[in-house]
Computed example of a mutant assay.
Amino acid sequence: MDGAQKTRKATGHQAEGVAARYLMSRGVNILERNVFSRGGEIDLVGIDDGTLVFFEVRFRGGGSLAGAAESITPTKQKRLIRAASFYLHRHGLGNAYSRIDVIAIAPGERKKYRIQWIKNAIQA
């Protein structure tokens, strides 16, 4: 792993921590972080008001939250849906109501980060 990959990985891990703290402050119970499966990786898995939620965390520099959310390509969306389906199957939750949300994070001006929570951002 070269220096740029290590930096990206460290930035991603930090953004996931920021997202987890943000979500917990809003009542989300975080169940798991960095869940890997054949389908792909899920950044965070939690319960929001009784609903199982798969969270994709996106960080973009330069203060653009839109850039973070828009960076999820159709290919990435398919991977997220596949990973969520695999998670549900593996845990025997095939009929459970769930959704995929996006947490977009960008550096802030007055606050350290600007965070946007896009609920049900990716439809299966």
Rank of each mutant, 00 (worst) to 15 (best):
P107R: 02
T73P: 05
R58H: 11
Y113I: 00
G92I: 00
S25L: 13
V57Y: 01
Y87H: 00
V28D: 03
Y87E: 00
G62D: 06
A15S: 12
M1Y: 12
G63W: 03
A83Y: 01
D2F: 08
N120Y: 07
N34A: 11
G39V: 01
A121R: 03
N29E: 13
R82G: 05
A66K: 15
F59W: 10
A106H: 02
A124V: 10
K76I: 08
E56W: 07
I72W: 06
L80S: 06
N95R: 15
H13V: 11
D2E: 09
G50Q: 04
T51C: 10
G92C: 06
I72N: 08
P107Y: 02
A96N: 08
V18Y: 11
V45A: 00
Y113Q: 01
A10M: 11
A15L: 05
I122A: 08
G94A: 10
L23K: 05
V57K: 00
S37I: 01
T11M: 07
F59V: 03
E109S: 13
T75W: 12
V45W: 00
S37R: 00
K76V: 07
V35D: 03
L52T: 06
L31D: 07
L93V: 03
N120T: 09
V28L: 04
D48R: 00
S85I: 02
F55W: 07
S37L: 00
E56F: 05
A106D: 00
A96E: 04
K112T: 15
R38S: 15
R8A: 12
L88Q: 01
K6M: 13
K111P: 08
R26N: 14
E32L: 07
I72Q: 09
E70K: 15
T75Q: 13
K119E: 11
I42E: 01
S85L: 01
I47L: 11
A121H: 07
Q5D: 15
K111T: 15
W117S: 08
G3Q: 13
R21F: 14
A96D: 02
G92Y: 01
Y97M: 11
I81L: 07
G67E: 02
G92A: 08
D101S: 11
I30H: 09
Y87F: 01
R110V: 14
A4C: 09
I103K: 03
K119H: 12
R79Y: 13
A121D: 09
A124T: 12
R60T: 00
N95L: 13
Q123M: 14
H89F: 10
I115Q: 02
L31I: 05
R114Q: 15
G94Y: 06
A19R: 04
L80W: 03
G17P: 08
A106L: 03
T73R: 05
I105Y: 04
A106E: 00
